[in-house]
Amino acid sequence: MNILDIITDPNTRWILLGTMFLGLSSGVIGSFAYLRKQSLLGDTLAHAALPGICVAFILTGVKSTSFFLIGAALAGLVAVFLISVLTRYSKIKQDAALGIVLSSFFGFGIVMLTQIQQSEYGNQSGLDTFLFGQTASMVMSDVYMMMTVSFILIFTCTVFFKEFKLLSFDPGFAKGMGLPVVFLDYFIMMLIVAAVVIGIQAVGVVLMASLLITPAVSARYWTERLHIMVILSGIFGMLSGVSGTLISTTVNDLPTGPLIVLSATVWFFFSMLFAPKRGVLSSVWRRVSTKKKYSLEQERRKGSHPS
């Protein structure tokens, strides 16, 4: 298959569109998560989706994507609530709270999964493919859903940009200005829940964290300004989505999710090496040139003051 075939193939075009929007929106919301030191929230929420999906299946008895998404979103909201309760009302720190919620939700989800397996519902195979992510099984309605959610996410981030910026850099000042800090805090986490829920289906539980983290970190290398970082992060996410999908359609049997993640990692390494100012190469160059300047100066001094 060459590029032209891929672009003209309607099925691939839909998937491409879906992963593109997914990368864009999770890149945008991921930059706020990164600045607020909540990068691994995405990982926790993705794992926490499992019991939600199981409950949705037990209640409805059908394998329907929209019910799964609703279940995952509700479980994500419960998880967000528990994390903030744990950190607020005990001496448990944020990282431990994330870990506790992640493992207990997932463990509970595994218990429910085995229950479903043994009960009269019989075949639950749809549940675990949902968890591992299967881009190929996405249909048009899934892509529409992804596009709608992504659009809402990006729109919200644009509208509340000033508030989110203040909250990310100086929550104390934001509170002093009279912003509803607790509400905004939950609001950002809810947006992350939304991004995770649409992402699970495409890249799976384990790799969803990457779409939120890696583009944001890559973008951080290039700039010191938040709005540029958010835009760049969205672009990096989008490029990773597109290139991962294209590679997986040209090479047989390679799963799309991991390839999207690996493309994001390639962008990360590229940024780490070549970014101006913060990149590795530029800092090496700076060090070498300073050293050279210094030794030149020393020599000149020796020449002018023979002692």
């Binding site: 691994l40 964290a209 990457s210 890696t214 944001a216 970190v217 799963p255 991991p258 993640v261």
Partner: peptide
Amino acid sequence: VQSDAAIGIVFTSLFATGIV
């Protein structure tokens, strides 16, 4: 890179390599 983000990048990319 912030420590939590560093953890996230490393394990997701290695896991993705494993699946590939």
